[in-house]
């Protein structure tokens, strides 16, 4: 396989993830959001698998499998059921309008490129480009977390952020413990989802339901 092709494909996949992150930012319907997220995870799993093949690192296939099974299938399905069961509104209330959010997101991508660009080229270009995309995904995920009032979409934001991390980790050639880390993160996400179900988190995490109010606790004003 030509080195150029390997580069192009991984570039394509990583770029696809950034694009999907923008789609997540843009989306204001709950179920579509979950579907786009599933797609996001799918692209991640493809990208990881491609890296496993390119780097000749078979353990990365495990990570790819986890991404595919857990993130692209189990979690979206679970969240879908939660949304239905808890009767959460199907539209997502954003804090700032979609337009400004997207513009800001573009700025973030620019920022990530700007900070990664000066990295000396001797660390191979693949890692460098991947890194810029991964950083963009992370930042966009965070942006999504803070521009949505709704807990489910915030979780989706967190998970897309985490996808960015896995992308970065697999892009780093020969990095040990990647599998362990991805497992650890999956546990974390599972915790969050369970947390939503069990505690029906409201107050501080804004709302699952937009009608719930902030009831300040502990130390009331």
């Amino acid at each position: 396989m030509a080195r150029g092709l390997a580069f192009d494909i991984s570039h394509l996949l990583a770029g696809g993830m950034v694009l999907l992150s923008f789609a997540l930012l843009y989306q204001d319907r709950m179920f579509s959001l979950l579907r786009i997220y599933a797609l996001h995870a799918l692209v991640l799993s493809l990208s990881v698998a491609w890296q496993a093949w390119v780097q000749g690192a078979p353990h990365l296939y495990v990570t790819a499998t986890i991404a595919l099974a857990f993130k692209a299938i189990v979690i979206p399905v679970a969240l879908h059921r939660i949304v239905v069961r808890l009767g959460i509104h199907r539209t997502i209330e954003t804090v700032v309008g979609v337009g400004p959010t997207i513009l800001f997101g573009l700025g973030l991508v620019g920022l990530s490129v700007a900070v990664i660009l000066p990295v000396t080229a001797e660390s191979d270009a693949l890692a460098r480009e991947d890194l810029a995309f991964a950083l963009s995904v992370v930042l966009l995920g965070l942006l999504m977390m803070i521009t949505r009032r709704n807990a489910v979409s915030q979780i989706v934001g967190f998970m897309s952020l985490e996808n960015g991390l896995v992308l970065a980790a697999t892009g780093a050639k020969g990095m040990p413990l990647v599998v362990e880390i991805s497992v650890a993160f999956s546990i974390l996400i599972a915790f969050i989802v369970i947390g939503i179900v069990l505690f029906r988190i409201r107050e501080r995490f804004d709302t699952v339901d937009i009608h719930a109010l902030d009831s300040f606790r502990g130390e009331r004003r």
Partner: peptide, 25 residues
């Protein structure tokens, strides 16, 4: 600042991150 929602606290973290990255850039 004691009575914000988690989202706003996250915004603080995010703001700090973006600020530092800008400084770096």
């Amino acid at each position: 600042l004691q009575f914000l929602t988690v989202r706003r606290y996250l915004s603080l973290v995010f703001g700090a991150l973006v600020l530092l990255l800008l400084v770096l850039a």
